[in-house]
Amino acid sequence: MESDLFGSLKDGEKGAVLVVHFGTTHEDTRAKTIDAVNKKIAEAFPGIEVREAWTSRIVMRRLKAQGIQKMNPEEALKQLKADGYTHILVQPSSIIDGIETESLRKDIAAQQQDFKEVRLSIPLLYSPDDYEAVIKAITTQRGKEDAVLLVGHGTYTPNTAQYAMLDYMLKAKGFDQWFVGTIEGYPYFDDALSQIRKKDCKTILLMPFLFVAGEHVKNDIAGDWKEELEKQGYHVDVLMKGLGENPAIQDIIVQHARFSATHQSMDIAKKKKEYAQGKEKYE
């Protein structure tokens, strides 16, 4: 339902956007992805404070050893409270609604009472419209290769089905030479390879379906996956870019932030209670 988080601020109230990233130890990709998205969101919310938090404790620990400090969501929210902010929009740069989003929800729930409102926005892939927008954004990057293999992170939870949905929608949109595999979930490497073998393919472009081009891109995709495909007789190129470098992908994240700043998700328990009282639908 429509609900303007920042447009309804009263005297003494302060709004902020907290942009939450997984993070990376690779400075080159950070500047092109994380910093770029932060800048675009700041431009989209003039007069509103924009801050960042990272969720990967491993990445933050490694950076701390180099003298670089990054806040996790819990720390960032505590700092926002200390600085007097009352209304917070949390915008993740995560690809799917997976375990990182689950962890983020718990961080927010633990400190919800410290603010007048904390609103969590959605990841890159959420509604079917998001999948269509992402497909439109990435399919312009194909070169002359016979096939494109998108490589996502994957997850051990049922949410890994979101990658299979992406594969299905690519085919439904006519992109028959596009395939999806994941590093740590389903579809597995062998599933993607099985589909590629059914096509008359000799050259493959490996395209990271990850926000940053960090460890997984440089080691798993450009290393293990490329080598295994070459053993199968394919000529393989690798697009050494994270999704976050794509301006169209950045714009989708900004659009999600804009929408979530002016619309609030309805509580399912509240809806069920109203249905039980006779309300048929919401306008």
Rank of each mutant, 00 (worst) to 15 (best):
Y126L: 08
G98A: 15
L104A: 09
Q141T: 12
E100N: 04
T140Q: 12
P123C: 00
Q113K: 13
T140V: 14
I108R: 03
A133F: 06
V151W: 06
R105I: 04
G143N: 10
D146P: 07
L125M: 00
K136C: 04
G143C: 05
K144S: 13
I138N: 01
T140F: 09
K116E: 12
A110I: 01
L124C: 03
V118D: 05
G143M: 06
A137L: 07
Q111Y: 01
V151P: 07
D146G: 07
S127C: 06
I108N: 09
L104Y: 06
V151M: 15
Y126W: 13
K144W: 01
I96G: 05
E132W: 04
V134G: 06
H153V: 08
I108H: 10
L104I: 00
P128A: 01
K136E: 15
E100A: 01
S127L: 12
V118Y: 00
L104R: 01
V118W: 01
Y126T: 14
T140E: 14
T139G: 10
T101S: 06
D130T: 13
V148M: 05
I122C: 04
K106C: 03
K136N: 13
I135P: 06
S121A: 15
I138Y: 00
I135A: 08
E132G: 10
D129S: 15
A110K: 08
A133C: 09
E145F: 10
P128F: 02
L149Q: 09
I138M: 02
T140S: 14
D129L: 15
T139H: 11
I135R: 09
E145W: 05
Q111R: 08
E102F: 06
K106L: 09
D114P: 00
R105W: 01
R142A: 12
E100Y: 00
I122L: 08
D130R: 03
H153A: 11
D107Y: 03
I122F: 08
L124T: 04
D130S: 13
L124Y: 01
S103T: 10
K106N: 09
D114C: 03
A133Y: 07
E132S: 13
V148N: 00
Q141P: 06
D146S: 05
K144C: 02
S127R: 14
F115N: 05
Q141M: 15
K116S: 07
L150V: 01
K136M: 05
K106P: 02
K144H: 12
E145N: 13
E145M: 11
E132Y: 08
S121E: 12
A109S: 12
Q111K: 04
I122N: 08
K116G: 06
L104D: 03
G152L: 01
A147N: 06
A133Q: 15
Y131A: 10
Q112C: 05
R142I: 08
D146F: 02
D97F: 10
I122Y: 09
T139Q: 08
A133V: 10
K136S: 14
L104N: 02
I108S: 11
S103D: 13
R105P: 01
H153P: 15
A147G: 07
G143L: 06
I99M: 12
R105A: 03
